[in-house]
């Protein structure tokens, strides 16, 4: 497999403040690659360096085998980018913005604009300043994909999209991937990444702390369990950590078969139960301490 993205010891400091340090990994062609970490971990710094919006302090990165700083404009011809927050020119209509965006690429993007706008139910004749946050985000999706890029870079893409549109958006991404596009998917929502990606890189405080296949991550995945009621001190369960009790509420992290968890808890005097995904911070604490 050819590598579409290669990072070699990529480092970025903002003055004395660390953005990322010595980050190295590769993303293969046609892969859906997850890039996760809590806010401030350095995800956006990495992406902005890949896009040549900021310059690395040390190290290098290549996209399609070309240095991402020296050949930024060439590379951008085949890259679609959706930032976490989208800002466009007020006073412009959606269709004008999309046509302006398309004018940078040497191809006819009309059909793709129509197709994507219709799928996302995007009002093309409205002025951008009159759009809701969600609709602005849809404009971002269309302008990022209208030239059928070979590499799609997404930075927290689902923020601001309602669940139905999120579903449509993920379907569009799947189609783009089937067409041959490589997807670099940055997020702090683990479930989103688990659902979409083949492999995942985990970033913490500017350092790459893990590079795993999603299947491995799933196998290792923890659940955060909150129980109301009375629990025995010693539960007949393995892999229970971080147990904390206050009043009638107990929380703990559990790794293992959910059916075994439920059958064990069913024997206890419990009033309510909440099983949820732990936050990334909680995962980091237990995986990588």
């Amino acid at each position: 497999m050819t590598n579409v993205i290669e990072l070699n010891g990529l480092t970025k400091f903002y003055g004395k403040v660390k953005g990322i340090e010595d980050v190295s990994f590769e993303v293969e062609e046609k892969e859906v690659f997850g890039f996760i970490g809590p806010n401030g971990a350095g995800k956006s710094t990495t992406i902005r360096t890949l896009l040549s919006l900021i310059f690395p302090t040390k190290g290098s990165a290549t996209i399609f085998g070309k240095d991402c700083i020296k050949h930024a404009s060439e590379i951008a011809m085949d890259v679609g980018y959706l930032p976490s927050e989208v800002f466009y020119y007020d006073g412009m209509k959606v269709k004008d913005l999309l046509n302006y965006s398309a004018s940078f690429f040497k191809k006819d993007c009309k059909q793709k604009i129509e197709e994507l706008s219709s799928l996302l139910d995007l009002p093309l004749n409205r002025k951008i300043e009159d759009l809701s946050f969600g609709n602005k985000k849809k404009v971002g999706i269309v302008q990022g994909l209208l030239h059928s890029p070979k590499l799609i870079i997404l930075d927290e893409p689902s923020a601001g999209l309602d669940p139905l549109i999120q579903q449509t958006f993920f379907n569009i991404l799947k189609q783009e991937n089937e067409r041959g596009a490589t997807i670099f998917f940055s997020s702090h929502i683990l479930s989103e990444v688990q659902r979409m990606c083949d492999r995942v890189a985990i970033l913490k405080e500017g350092h790459l702390i893990a590079l795993q296949k999603i299947s491995e991550l799933r196998k290792d995945s923890y659940k955060k369990v909150t129980v109301s009621g009375t629990l025995k001190e010693e539960l007949d369960l393995e892999n229970v950590t971080n147990r904390q009790s206050a009043d009638e509420h107990t929380t703990f992290l559990y790794k293992g078969d959910v059916r075994k968890l439920l059958s064990t808890l069913a024997k206890q005097h419990i009033d309510d139960i909440l099983i949820e995904e732990p936050s990334l911070e909680e995962i980091f604490l237990h995986y990588y301490q």
Binding site: S73, A76, F87, S101, F104, Q143
Partner: peptide, 14 residues
């Protein structure tokens, strides 16, 4: 000011 730099600078243009 309008935060549109990302849009323009991520396009294939020097």
């Amino acid at each position: 000011r309008n935060r549109t730099s990302d849009f323009l600078l991520s396009k294939p243009v020097k």
